[in-house]
Design a protein around this nucleic acid. Structure first.
Lengths: 341, 341
DNA sequence: CTCGACAATGTGACCGTGCACATTCCGAGT
DNA sequence: ACTCGGAATGTGCACGGTCACATTGTCGAG
C-alpha cells in the first residue's frame, strides 16, 4: 500500500484527509475556514498539512471556482521612473489583497502588439486589467476589442467606458506655468511630450489654459519625445533664437537635456533662462541647478488603482476615492525672476 | 435543450466538439497540433472555435499537466533603471517563449518578507524563479528554504547552488579605476554602495584590485546607499578635507550627488575633481558635465537569464551563453587629467 | 479475399478542489 | 421516550482539459 506521498506528485487534500482520518471535504473546510469544524479536528488536519508541507493547488481551485485571482497589467515604458513606481505599488497592493499580478509589456503601440498583449493576459484568465499605456491609440484599440472584464486605466482621459485614474495633469501644468508667470516671465516656451500621449496633451492644455487666463501671449509648443537627448537638441535649436526667458518642460528628463544645452552655450540657469520640469524624479533635486518641478505621487496612484479595480471585480460599491490626485509644485533652484537689463 | 453557450461559463472543448460534430478529444488534438487529424476536420473545428471565441482554460491544463507555465521574479528596488530594464526584458523573453511572469517585490530584506514573497510565488506553482535582489542576506535566506525548482539569480556571487548570471562588476570597476589612473590620478576615493549588496562589494573589490595592481595607495572606501542624496552629503563631507583629485562612484545617482556638492562648493568637474559613475543610466549623458561611466547591458542580462532558466526547467543542456557579460567604459566630460599647480 | 498496419477518431478515467446534498450525532423541548 | 434542529462530517459529482486505451476506416501485401 502507498504509505507515503512518494508518488512524485505533490500531496493533495485527499492525502491529508487519509492521514488525518477525515474526509477530503473536511480538509477543504479547514482550508476555507468553514464555521462548523470542531477545533480538535481542525488542529489535527492542520498538523498533518504541516507535516506533509501541503500547499493548495491554485490551478484546481481556479478551475472549479472559475476565478483566477490574477489581474493583468499592460504597460508601456515600464523602465521609466513613474510607471515603474506605480507598477511596484500595484504589485504590493495586489499581493496584500491575495491577488497575483501578471504584466505584459508593450514594445510598440500598433494594434497587433496591443492585441497580443491583451490576448496573453486573457489566456491567463485575468479578472481585471490595469492599462498604463498613455498613448490614446492604445485605448482606441482596446475599445474595439470589447473586453468583458473590469478595466482601470492610469494616465488616460477616460473617454471610453473604462475607469480612469490619474494625477491631474492639467492642474500640474497650470501650477508650473503660474509659477513662471508669477516670477515675472512673459516669454515662455513649452517643450511638450509626444503628440499622441494623453499626458503630454493634458500638460500642454494646462500650459495654454494658464497662459490664456493670465493674458500672456504664447508661442506654439515644441513636440518632444520625453528623452533627455531630445531636450538637449531642442535646447540648442531654441538658443539660436533666444526670444524667451523661461521654458516649461513636460518632464524632468527633457528639462535635464535643456539645461545641458543652455549651460553648454555659456548661459546660466536660472539667471539667463529659467527651466521647470514635471514628475520630480528622485534625481531632480541633484541636477545642477536643482530642478524646480511638479511632483506626482506615483505609488499612491498604483494603490488607488488596485483599490478601484478590486472593488469593481468584487462588485462592491465604488470606493470613496477621488479619481484625481493633486500634483504639487516643488520649487528648487532652476527658476528665478527674469533678468532685465 | 441548451442550444447556445448561454450558460454563463466560457465555452469548453465539449461545446466546440458538439457544434463541430466530433468528440472532445478531437478538439483537444486540434489544439495540440496532433499529426493525425484530417485537414478538413481540423478546419471545421477551428472554425467553430472562432465562432464561439473559444479560449483554452489555462487552469484546467495546468491542473492535468501539473505545470503552470509561469515563472516567478523576486525583485528588490524594481523602480530603479537597471532592475526595471532587466525585468522588462525578462517579461518580453518569457512571453515570447509562452511563459507567464509573476513578480513579487521585496519591500525589505528581512527573512519574513523574503519568505512571504517566495511563498506567494510558490502558491502560483511557478516552475522557476529569477531572483534580482542583490543583497547577500537574501540568498542566505533562500538557501535555507531549499526550494526544489530551478533558480537563476542576477547580481549574485553564485556561491549557493543557484545559477548566477551577471555583468562582470569587478571588471567594470577595474575599467573605471584604470581610466582614472591612466589620466594621471593618484589620490582617488571610492564611494561604494551598501555593504551587504553583492554588486557594491564586487565593485569595491575591483577598485581595490586595480589600485593594487597599479601600485597606487588607497584610502578606505566610503559606504553609501545608492542615492543621489547620499552622494551629495558625502561630497560635502569629503570636500572639507580635499585630499583627492578623483572619485569613483559605485553608481550614477551617487555620482550626480557628488557633482552637485562639488559644483556647489565652487569647484569644477573635471578641472578640479574628476568623477566617474557606474551603470550609464540614460540621463548620464546629459548631466552637467556629461558623466563618464561604465555601461551595463541590462536588457541582455534579462534575456540571457530567461534563456538559462527555461533551459533548466526543460532539462535542456545548458546553453552556450557565457555567464558573465562584459561592461563597457563610456568616456564623457566628467573626467580629465588632474590639475597640477 | 483476408489480414495487418496505420491513420483517424471516440470513450472513459483522472488531475485537485469546491459545491450540493446527504447523513450522523447530540442535546433541548414537549 | 420521541421528535426536532442544528452542528459536524461524509458522498459523489462537476470544473475543462489530457492521457491511455479502445474502436473504426482505409489500403496494400500476400
Amino acid at each position: 500500500m502507498t504509505t507515503d506521498t512518494s508518488k512524485g506528485r505533490a500531496p493533495s487534500i485527499r492525502d491529508v484527509a487519509r492521514l488525518a482520518g477525515v474526509s477530503h471535504q473536511t480538509v477543504s473546510r479547514v482550508l476555507n475556514d468553514h464555521p462548523s469544524i470542531r477545533d480538535s479536528t481542525k488542529a489535527r488536519v492542520q498538523q498533518v498539512m504541516d507535516e506533509l508541507q501541503y500547499r493548495p493547488n491554485r490551478a484546481a481551485r481556479a478551475l472549479v471556482k472559475g476565478r483566477s485571482r490574477t489581474i493583468g497589467v499592460i504597460s508601456a515604458s515600464s523602465t521609466q521612473y513613474g510607471p515603474a513606481s506605480s507598477i511596484a505599488a500595484i504589485q504590493d497592493a495586489s499581493r496584500a489583497a491575495g491577488y497575483y499580478v501578471n504584466t505584459a509589456n508593450l514594445t510598440s503601440v500598433d494594434p497587433a502588439s496591443i492585441e497580443a498583449a491583451v490576448e496573453h493576459l486573457l489566456d491567463q484568465a485575468v479578472e481585471g486589467m490595469v492599462v498604463m499605456a498613455p498613448q490614446s491609440r492604445v485605448f482606441d484599440t482596446l475599445a474595439e476589442m470589447s473586453l468583458d472584464i473590469p478595466l482601470v486605466t492610469l494616465q488616460s482621459t477616460g473617454v471610453h467606458r473604462e475607469r480612469a485614474l490619474s494625477v491631474d495633469q492639467i492642474a500640474g501644468a497650470r501650477l508650473a506655468t503660474r509659477h513662471l508667470i508669477e516670477l515675472g516671465h512673459r516669454d515662455i516656451y513649452h517643450l511638450a511630450g509626444p503628440q499622441d500621449w494623453i499626458e503630454a496633451e493634458a500638460r500642454m492644455r494646462g500650459f495654454l489654459e494658464e497662459m490664456g487666463a493670465q493674458d500672456v501671449p504664447t508661442t506654439a509648443p515644441i513636440l518632444g519625445d520625453w528623452t533627455a537627448n531630445f531636450g538637449y537638441h531642442a535646447g540648442r535649436e531654441l538658443l539660436r533664437v533666444r526670444d524667451f526667458t523661461a521654458i516649461f518642460s513636460s518632464n524632468d528628463q527633457m528639462a535635464l537635456g535643456l539645461v545641458h544645452a543652455i549651460t553648454e552655450s555659456g548661459l546660466r540657469v536660472p539667471q539667463d533662462v529659467s527651466v521647470i520640469g514635471f514628475d520630480d524624479v528622485p534625481e531632480a533635486a541633484h541636477f545642477w541647478p536643482p530642478l524646480t518641478t511638479v511632483r506626482q505621487d506615483f505609488p499612491e496612484l498604483g494603490r488607488r488603482c488596485i483599490a478601484l479595480l478590486l472593488a469593481e471585480i468584487n462588485g462592491e460599491p465604488s470606493s470613496g476615492y477621488s479619481r484625481s490626485l493633486q500634483p504639487e509644485l516643488v520649487v528648487r533652484a532652476s527658476t528665478a525672476p527674469p533678468f532685465r537689463p
